[in-house]
Design a protein around this nucleic acid. Structure first.
Ligand code: ZN
Ligand code: ZN
Ligand code: ZN
Ligand code: ZN
Lengths: 140, 140
DNA sequence: AAATTTTTGTTATATTATAACACTATACTC
DNA sequence: GAGTATAGTGTTATAATATAACAAAAATTT
């Protein structure tokens, strides 16, 4: 029985459910205030659930934002092998599923020949929607 | 006159000097406590200097550690194009200078064709020194 | 020298995350 | 199924990281 098929605890379900409902990444204290009606009262309850959900790969942490987002890649059952694109303007985050890039990163060795267990890659730019808005604004 | 050749202010010099003296990344409040004797009294003074030093590429932020490290790549004059290897055990950080990987990341486009301004890549593993220590320990 | 921009110093506060402890639920083992 | 180990819960307090806001000084530009 692998990690993924183990059933989640009550708090883990509540937190995961809230993260999955959001298109954008969410912050820990935003999660907290949104799930208080479900009986989660304090930060440690949220952070514990987050830790577990990250460990089993259901969510990822967006390091540059201190935020958390649901995994969008069905077979992403491990944590710490993540690639995101992040819009500098609207802060929307997309998980990137690019086989060639995966391979490049998986095969990477440093000068010593050290193999790495995991990685996190975050690309920064302006998303299509924000770019269009900027063009709109310069027209007027 | 490019950003790099502009001379640094007093506080910027103090903070950069301290970061460069350290082999490992340093935390903001560790910087603060270590430079108080030089007349830097409060967090904003440190964070402002850090922001500027990051902007001009003299230092980088290690996102997964909330820490700051001097740039080790002479021609790394832009921020936000960074690759690090990080030891899970001793937390030592090395900036990676790998032309092939640079090219892969520079050339990456998402499905939309969006071009990215920058990226941050952090590899996680066990450094050679820590791996050797682990082997030592299993011997006894 | 006046105006603008950058940097400084300071106080207060916001945001993010964990320590510690007592207790409960679930899973595992014999 | 009783005993035991493991994982999860609830709670309070506090640690660690980062920024807002404002007034003053210094450096740079015009
Ligand atoms: Zn994923
Ligand atoms: Zn956007
Ligand atoms: Zn660098
Ligand atoms: Zn190490």
């Amino acid at each position: 029985m692998d990690k993924k098929s183990k059933s989640l605890s009550k708090n883990q379900k509540i937190v995961l459910d809230f993260i999955q409902k959001n298109k954008k990444p969410v912050k820990a204290y935003s999660i907290l205030s949104n799930v208080q009606k479900k009986g989660i009262n304090a930060p440690p309850q949220v952070y514990r659930a987050l830790d577990k959900l990250i460990e089993i790969g259901k969510i990822h942490r967006v390091e540059s934002q201190n935020s958390f987002v649901a995994c969008k890649i069905s077979n992403c059952d491990t944590p710490h092998k993540t690639i995101f694109s992040i819009c500098n303007s609207c802060e929307i985050v997309s998980e990137i599923n690019d086989p060639k890039l995966f391979k490049n990163l998986k095969d990477f060795r440093d000068k010593d020949g050290t193999v790495f267990d995991g990685y996190n890659l975050e690309f920064f730019g302006t998303c299509k929607s924000c770019k269009n808005k900027q063009i709109e604004n310069t027209k007027h």
